[in-house]
């Protein structure tokens, strides 16, 4: 068992190394993580320093991505903006995965009316367009990044729940699960030690591909003015602030948006590569 699972991951890793898309995706993601981690050392300027004499400067050697309405360096602000985008993407997907895994495990393992209730709840949550439900939660709880995190976390777990339940149903009656049950293992132990490791690859794939959604949603909510405050920097908020001047200063909108596209593309490339490597059933797709 131990031997087999290690060889599965080794096998997967060697496949991953051969996939150019996965490597490109991984490099993009790593670069952004490094940028976010070392932002104060990389950013050429203080992201909050205003210089009214230097307003709305077009890109130049001094300011590669130009300056914004307050004369702040757009590139430096983008470098700091990577922090909130990445943290938001990763934490939201972690909470979504956690809720989905717990509910999916319970629904799939116990079945019966427990399953019926959980799955009808899932159907109901899926029926709402995520962004509108998130907006309504924001309207109730007020603006702010924490509330963005909260609203996004409790709307997107349904994919994980359905995925985990489906996978649990497919392994529930397998011999090794039966054997563990025969040996008197508790339900919790069976779910955590025997079922969860088997569905982990699928969860990892979905989580990686799923990071894109909260990053884009946070940008959208900040663009609508409901996320960051003026002492916080996010790419969506930068676009929102620069929007009135779109005709005169395209750079303050174009570059932060490109950052979103590139980081989201990175996670999607990596997720695609992981799917090819970890899920041999879909190897050629």
């Amino acid at each position: 068992m131990e031997e087999k699972s290690r060889s599965f991951y080794q096998d997967a890793f060697s496949r991953l190394k051969k996939s150019p898309t996965a490597i490109v995706g991984l490099i993009i993601v790593l670069i952004f993580i490094l940028i976010a981690a070392f932002a104060p050392f990389i950013a050429p300027y203080d992201p909050f320093e205003m210089n009214l004499r230097n307003r709305q400067q077009a890109p130049s050697w001094e300011h590669p991505f130009g300056t914004d309405f307050f004369g702040r360096d757009v590139m430096s602000r983008m470098i700091f903006g990577a922090r909130i985008s990445l943290i938001m993407g990763i934490t939201v997907i972690a909470v979504r995965a956690f809720i989905g895994i717990v509910l999916g495990l319970i629904a799939g393992y116990y079945g019966g009316w427990v399953e019926t209730i959980i799955m009808r709840l899932t159907d109901a949550v899926i029926a709402f367009p995520g962004i509108i439900l998130a907006l309504a939660i924001m309207a109730v709880r007020g603006p702010g990044l924490f509330n963005v995190f909260f609203a996004l976390s409790i709307v997107g777990w349904t994919t994980f729940c359905r995925l985990v339940r489906g996978e649990v149903l497919s392994v529930r009656e397998r011999d090794y699960v039966m054997a563990a049950r025969g040996l008197g293992a508790s339900d919790l132990k069976i779910m955590l030690a025997h079922i969860l490791p088997n569905i982990m690859p699928a969860i990892v794939i979905y989580a990686t591909l799923g990071i894109a959604a909260p990053i884009i949603s946070e940008a959208g909510l900040s663009f609508l003015g409901l996320g960051a405050r003026s002492d916080q920097i996010t790419w969506g908020f930068m676009i929102s602030m620069a929007r009135p001047y779109i005709r005169y200063a395209w750079w303050s909108i174009t570059f932060p948006g490109l950052a979103i596209v590139v980081v989201v593309l990175g996670f999607n490339l990596l997720g695609d590569g992981l799917r090819d490597a970890l899920d041999p059933r879909m190897k050629d797709v």
Partner: peptide, 10 residues
Amino acid sequence: LLGVSIPNFW
């Protein structure tokens, strides 16, 4: 993949 990665507002 690029199409899927672009925020619609941007």
